[in-house]
Design a binder for these strands. Structure first.
Length: 198
DNA sequence: ATAATGATTGGC
DNA sequence: CCAATCATTATT
């Protein structure tokens, strides 16, 4: 994974992430999943983005840094969400990773999610089907905020099974308000994949 | 200092 | 459909 990879335009990067592996290595072991769903958030002009109108706070700070780092935040008092910082330093874009197809460390993921083992094929595919679930399954939390996705225990890798087709696109999930941002088709996913959320 | 609210999930 | 649960943010 080269740093230059993250320099492409945000929605193109969101597309390029589909099929790639998100890997997290901890003391408990290795866990990884293939990215099957992403959402682009494009800074100042995007009212759905945390960085809308250039809002720069302790939480959003990493989005203003160089691309290729993790932006992890806590929501609803109980879940974490993991983003890939995009765009050049100073431009606060990020891509929310919304769902993974579990690939490595399935048992560890099930344990972290509080599920039994073994699981049915169907339940296994759902272990990381949502932004909060994926963070829990991979053990991603506050400590991973700001980590480099090139060189750190949390990394992105090209997959042996890249996604080469045309992604499905649609409006982003769970964003409030009623402005034009509601309709932007910046949610991308692998069509009909069983690990996609919702 | 206080109040409102969430880029969600799981249970009824 | 709705409650859980608390950090973050804006406001006083």
């Amino acid at each position: 994974m080269e740093a230059a990879f993250f320099e492409q335009p945000t929605v193109e990067l969101a597309r390029a992430l589909l099929g790639m592996l998100l890997v997290h290595r901890t003391r408990d072991g290795l866990a990884a999943g293939r990215i099957v769903e992403t959402e682009a958030y494009q800074g100042p002009q995007d009212e759905a983005a945390h960085s809308y109108r250039g809002r720069r706070t302790p939480r959003t700070e990493v989005m203003f840094g160089p691309p290729g780092h993790a932006y992890v935040y806590f929501v609803y008092g109980m879940h974490f969400c993991c983003n890939v910082v995009a765009a050049p330093a100073g431009v606060p874009h990020a891509i929310l990773v919304r769902a993974l197809e579990p690939v490595v460390g399935l048992r560890l993921m099930a344990q972290r999610r509080g599920r039994g083992w073994p699981l049915s094929k169907r339940d296994t595919l759902r272990l990381a089907s949502g932004p909060g679930r994926l963070c829990q399954a991979l053990g991603i939390g506050r400590d991973q905020n700001g980590l480099s996705l090139v060189h750190s225990p949390l990394s992105l890798r090209h997959s042996a099974l890249p996604f080469t087709g045309l992604p499905a696109t649609g409006p982003r999930v769970g964003i409030a308000g009623s402005g034009p941002a509601q309709a932007y088709p910046w949610r991308l996913w692998i069509p009909a994949h069983p690990s996609v959320s919702r």
